[in-house]
Computed example of a mutant assay.
Amino acid sequence: MRKITAVAMAALTLSLTATSAFADQLADIKQRGSLVCGVLGTVEPFSFSNPQTREVQGYDVDFCSAIAKSLGVKLELKQIAVAARIPELQQGRVDILAAALGWTPERAQQIAYSDQYYVSLTKVAVKRSEGFKSVADLAGKRISANKGSTSETAVKKAVPTASTVTFQDAPTAFLALQQGRVEGLALGEMMLVKFKLQADPSTPIEILEPPVMHEQWGLGMRKGESAFIAHVNGVLQAMEKSGDATKIFDKWLGSSTAYKLRRDFKVEQIKG
């Protein structure tokens, strides 16, 4: 019995040691004086480099800034790849993720999600000259998507016979479509709208209907950090109530932008 107890105590000690590494993250961030926010940095208008200032800006950045301001600390942005988002968070290299992080049951088992702060419609774009009229027409064809993204998952479900070709970022996936290396491109609607506007007029792009996925985006945090999670959700709810969340949407995605999207969602709990 004593041997079993000793083993159990050793396991508990290891568990407590591991937990203490990120214990009371909210207090740690305040003491450190900075909030490290993981962003993609390559997805306009969510997080991208301003060509004049070289600083990363965008929709995601503005939400990170609001949270840092609420804590009275400075904001530090860390650019990360799509596939590295959750590992960077779990290993403590970032405090929070604002990185086009769509909710999935699998991800929700690994990390905590904030309330939704954006809802993305995933659609598929094709070259007009190819004559595709619906997503179903891409059966047996090649469709590009970001590696490790929910767009990749959505394509596999919507067109199981299609071959999914993944890339590290959206511009590279779009280039594959332009060069004819794939027949379709699966991305969020607003990114596809931007790419459509940027496309060579001699090879126009069409966005197919209907969407292959409605994706709720949340800010990613480590599980177990109840105080930090509650604080972040409190900030998001306050931004919704004050209208600040709507202002950020209009600034980057609204009628005066190239995307001309309408905000038909609000900050609320993600219901998986």
Rank of each mutant, 00 (worst) to 15 (best):
L121G: 10
D264T: 14
N233V: 04
L197R: 12
D169Q: 11
Q116D: 00
V232C: 04
A199Y: 05
E152S: 07
F132H: 00
Q178G: 12
E44T: 07
Q79G: 14
T164V: 11
V193W: 06
L121F: 08
P201W: 00
L101N: 15
L177S: 03
S120D: 15
V232S: 02
G254K: 05
L12H: 10
A145W: 02
L75M: 11
G188M: 09
A66V: 10
D264P: 08
I248H: 02
F195H: 13
D244Q: 12
L208A: 00
P201T: 01
V7P: 14
S20P: 08
S151I: 05
A18R: 06
V56F: 05
V135A: 11
F22S: 15
Q52T: 15
Y259K: 08
F174S: 06
L89R: 07
L121R: 14
A162G: 04
E189W: 13
G38D: 13
S202Q: 09
D137R: 00
K247D: 10
P171H: 06
M221H: 01
L192E: 11
A230R: 07
K127I: 00
A18T: 06
S49P: 04
E209M: 04
A68P: 02
L197E: 13
A81M: 14
P45T: 10
A18Y: 09
T257V: 11
F46H: 09
A227R: 12
G243H: 01
F249P: 00
F228S: 03
A158C: 07
K74A: 03
L16V: 09
G218F: 02
V124C: 05
G140L: 09
S149R: 09
R128Q: 09
A112V: 03
G272R: 10
V56C: 06
Q91L: 15
G102N: 12
E183M: 01
T17E: 03
V36S: 08
A154C: 11
Q269W: 00
G102T: 07
T153Y: 10
